[in-house]
């Protein structure tokens, strides 16, 4: 009897180990693509990398040229504990020396070069939907930025979130590179918007509410959510949204470009940094985002 129990425990442990094992692309799965740093700069802004990874200046978020100082160190307060944002500059303390495969696996599979899971506070759940070639371009761009030494300590999370291996099980439930909204191959503008909103822009990470384990409720896609930082609400940006419902597509594009609403009030809160990133995109990309947002199902 005791042997059976031991065998079952062992089997259970092996199953859990297998379920939670980190995995990623193999070298063969990377597209044949020559990384382009100029294209990568647009990916950088679309992905909002600076909003978390730029080192805060005097305790405040970095502005202007300081957004390219990617030494990390920002602290993200969350219901699970404090996440400390790492260095992603091309220094040995950051991503210096990473291979292209390691970088793509970090961005799209949430696996570190050492084979550990990243917490999904790093929105690889969205970046998984980006084109691998865009991610390759991003690395080429990051490699052109200043190498910054040092980095913050580890996250301070509460149990059971502190068990990193457990993210493997979480990923099996929630990491899904498939489009959230059906692909719109017949409308290239909406399709481009889908790539930006669902993928690089990772808009759903804040604008969609989550279940108790932190998985996005895709039937409430972009329907607004409690602020991940605990106070206030992130607005519904579907046609059911109180403010955005009356906005035209060009209102949305202009807001992302200038930071002004149709009432000529200014963008506020955590959206300020996002809008400043979106201002770096082309106007065609901002129009694509607007077209996509106008196409998503209404959430009331």
């Amino acid at each position: 009897m005791r042997r059976i129990v031991v065998a079952l425990l062992l089997l259970g442990f092996m199953a859990a180990w297998w379920v939670t094992a980190p995995s990623g692309f193999s070298e063969l799965e990377l597209p044949g693509h020559t990384p382009d740093a100029v294209a990568g700069e647009r990916v950088f802004w679309a992905g909002g990398c600076a909003s978390c990874h730029a080192t805060p200046v005097n305790g405040k978020r970095a502005k202007g040229a300081d957004k390219l100082v990617l030494g990390g160190g920002m602290e993200l307060e969350s219901p699970y504990g404090v996440f400390r944002v790492p260095n992603i500059s091309p220094h040995a303390d950051g991503i210096g020396g990473w291979s292209m495969l390691e970088f793509v696996n970090a961005m799209q599979h949430g696996v570190s070069p050492a084979g550990k899971h990243y917490y999904p506070s790093f929105p690889y759940t969205s970046y998984a939907r980006a084109a691998a070639r865009d991610v390759m371009d991003l690395k080429a761009y990051l490699d052109t930025l200043s190498a910054i030494a040092g980095g913050p300590g580890d996250h301070s999370l509460s149990f059971p979130w502190s068990i990193r291996r457990g993210i493997g099980a979480w990923k099996r439930l929630y990491l899904d590179a498939a489009p959230v909204q059906a692909s719109m191959a017949e409308d290239p503008l909406i399709e481009r918007g889908r790539e930006l909103v669902e993928g690089l822009g990772h808009c759903g990470e804040c604008h969609t509410s989550r279940d108790r384990f932190g998985g996005l409720l895709k039937d409430r896609w972009l329907g607004g959510a409690a602020s991940p930082e605990g106070k206030g609400r992130i607005p519904n940006i579907t046609a059911g949204g109180e403010n955005i419902a009356s906005w035209t597509g060009s209102d949305i594009a202009y807001y992302l470009e200038s930071g002004f609403t149709p009432e000529f009030d200014t963008v506020g809160g955590t959206m300020v940094a996002v809008q400043e990133n979106m201002a770096h995109l082309t106007s065609a990309d901002r129009e694509a985002i607007a077209a996509y947002l106008k196409s998503v199902p209404t959430v009331d």
């Binding site: 002004f260 200014t266 300020v272």
Partner: peptide
Amino acid sequence: FGKCKDCHDGYRIE
């Protein structure tokens, strides 16, 4: 317009 935004971001509450 940019200065409106800069000042609101930090000196105006949401």
